[in-house]
Design a protein around this nucleic acid. Structure first.
Lengths: 165, 165
DNA sequence: CATATATTCGAAATTTATTCGATTGACTGT
DNA sequence: ACAGTCAATCGAATAAATTTCGAATATATG
């Protein structure tokens, strides 16, 4: 598993820009970080092959396509047998309406973020999926009033660990 | 606020592709949905101006840049006065380590997803930010064992509501 | 200080994005 | 059914960006 990589200030600048806006052209990024387009291109290619830059995803306005309601499900699971839980996790993540799954420690075992058309739709997902599996002990549902996703480097400017370490 | 938009099967196909991989070229998308590049380009432009396609963000391997630990904070807030809560939400979202903030109904008021270097770093964020604000009544912390984000259309194939409705 | 390695650059070659007028197809009202 | 209106699609031309690559520069190593 790729855990550590050497990145300099310029790499971080590139990553920071692409996290904010993956639609930036190579030319624009090059200008922003002070490199020639060819050099910048080389670095981006390297970041991808090294597994730092993983992918890019477009964000669509889910309200606009008929999903105005969001919820978080707090799921308690029974005695965790690796196999069964893993299967349930996979099948949960495979539901189109599911936007994220967190397997966590503490009072709950699983947090599931879903988007739905309406309350009926939400009820359907819970009753058809979660209340059907034996591993699920209990589900608590919270409606999401407001949700903000942050696509920024979790690091203050110029705090990139250089290769000097 | 833009809530409803007319989208046909092709629009959904384009959105589905871009959600999965925002690095696809216009040419590739055009081929995949069976349009000429110029037509596809026109549609994508329209999707953006209509506010359906909002943005795109690169996903970086946070392990690789020194953030191997994730946590979810369950926050209870005091009597919700709009102004104060709103300010606290904004300041929370402004923390670089925060990846998402959910204002929810139910047992907790706020869910915060954070990435950190280590436990010390996590403790620091909680004590420096959350335990410093009067609105915060209580914080429960869960370590994230596993986290899967889903970047797919929350809709089964060919289930796009056509303009016929 | 000399050697080896990695980065950077600029220019050429390739590919892609973008514009635009003409054509096709779909919808409206009579 | 039919003419008229509007929107979508296409292909070709132009503009712009990506990608490759050898030479030059900088950086690290012994």
């Amino acid at each position: 598993m790729a855990t550590e990589v050497d990145l300099d200030r310029t790499d971080f600048a590139i990553l920071r820009l692409l996290m904010k806006d993956a639609w930036l052209s190579n030319k624009e990024i090059a200008a922003a970080v002070g490199l020639a387009p060819s050099s910048c291109h080389e670095r981006i290619k390297s970041l991808r092959t090294r597994g730092v830059l993983v992918s890019a995803h477009a964000e669509v306005n889910l309200q606009a396509i008929g999903f105005p309601l969001e919820a978080v499900l707090f799921v308690q699971l029974g005695k965790l047998e690796g196999q069964v839980v893993d299967k349930f996790l996979k099948s949960t993540a495979a539901i189109p309406e599911v936007r994220g799954v967190f397997l966590v420690s503490g009072r709950f075992d699983l947090l599931v973020h879903v988007v739905v058309h309406d309350m009926e739709h939400l009820k359907e997902i819970i009753s058809q999926h979660f209340n059907r599996h034996a591993v699920v002990v209990r589900v608590e549902t919270s409606v999401v009033f407001n949700h903000e996703a942050r696509h920024v480097m979790p690091l203050a400017e110029n705090k990139g660990k250089s290769a000097i370490s």
